[in-house]
Design a protein around this nucleic acid. Sequence first.
DNA 1: GAAAATGTTATCAT
DNA 2: TATGATAACATTTT
Length: 243
Amino acid sequence: MPEGPSIVIVSEKLKDFSRKKIIDASGYANNIDFRKLKGRTIKKVTTHGKHLLFILDKGFVRVHFLLFGSYRINERKKTNHKLQIKTSHGFVNFYACGLDHRDESARSYYDWTIDVMNPKFSRRKALQKLKDSEMIACDALLDQSTFSGVGNIIKNEVLYRAKIHPESKIKKVPAAKQKKMVDEAVKYSFEFLKWRKANVLGKYWEAYTKKKCKRCDRPIYKKVTGKTKRRSFFCKNCQEKYL
DNA sequence: GAAAATGTTATCAT
DNA sequence: TATGATAACATTTT
């Protein structure tokens, strides 16, 4: 569920909640004042990176699915919901999510130039940040302040496609490959969206959970890498390690 | 039943 | 105080 493109899919499924008034809100979330949600109007449902956003007439509600979050629209699971938003046209339940309700405007809170799924995403800015970054490649891609929405699957596929070893020092990666990495972060994210919608996401994985490199037929290695300590899948032969 | 997983944040130690 | 490692949280699938 959790990577940016999956959240876009949720927001699309919730588009009918736009322009509806919240007639009730409830759940076991301890950081949400449900009384303050009741009566608000949902202006639109959108996303920023891995955040699902209900833009209200005042403030916004943020849902983060973390690793295990889930939702149901006009249905309920057996477990209690952490948040339910009810309108005259239907309700949505969220389970095991991180939640927030803020009074400020989403426009001032979020920078949409760092959201890979947003048309405003700035490749130039991302590249600028990579240029003298001390991070290694796997961490750089997971850095939500540069690539909001990129998760571990996208990370692995992007590095494989850009032919960069996950433990490369990012500032040592040649400029052309840095650019390739940024371009692929956007391109693969939208392919992820398309393939996820068609329910064929895993069919197009070239590195993530793979055993063999489709380019050179040598093994794909699996290693927990970086400060982020997430699984990296890579081909030692095809993905160059810059140090 | 154990283990692992598309993630983040709080807390503790240095 | 700041940094970094560890724990915590939560759920489904293999």
